[in-house]
Amino acid sequence: MQILEGEKVTKYFGGLAAVSNVDFYVGQGEVVGLIGPNGAGKTTLFNLISASLVPKPGVIKFKGKNITGKKPHKICRMGIARTFQTVKIFTNMPVLQNVLAGSFFGTSPGMSSADAAREASESLEFVGLSDMAALPARDLTLANQKRLEVARAMATRPELLLLDELMAGLNATEITEGMELVKKIRDKGITIVMIEHVMKAIMNVCDRIIVLHHGEKIAEGTPQEIATSKKVIEVYLGE
């Protein structure tokens, strides 16, 4: 079954087509990588899926239902969670409260305080931040702030998780740990779409890769197919 489908998804910023006529699908349980040079429209596509932006024209379907034009909080409660390219945690709140906000508001139907608190602790445990629950979120390292964002997203009990450059700015050890985390999330049965520039990570964890360039989808396939695709190499390295 296709958990996410996009038909002719397009978004103009003024005269610039940030995303243009992109058809895509994501299968249940898949890990899909979204790559492309800077400005290719990857994050815009994420914003369209998570309803920060509305495609015009175009249709986005989640579990067969048309979700185009719904509000972000509704999308989240339906089961799509996301993280951000530039970390957007609640810096002045304790770590646990960041996650608690996710389990309180992001689940549908809502949870009791006790359930939300339990869910939040479990999410923190899952990403390995339990020891830091009481710290203000601003005191975490970048890698841990990214983990916190994942925990907050996981606390909303998503079926589909959008990860926007989880590995950017991390060192080699942290990237390995990040890849482990992505695999752990997949093993929970959560479908993942990830934007990534770290090729090692993309090649290792993705089942399928979609390549965007100037807002258009130029290639799609398994990591091997993409790595050997002439078109993709041209886009990245020039002719």
Partner: peptide, 25 residues
């Protein structure tokens, strides 16, 4: 209350609040 947590999350980062299910408006 939960409502207070929602307000603080809006003050901290409105976009993130919306994407974790807070009906910000």
């Amino acid at each position: 209350s939960k409502f207070g947590l929602a307000m603080r999350s809006i003050g901290e980062n409105e976009e993130a609040a919306a994407h974790i299910g807070v009906n910000v408006t």
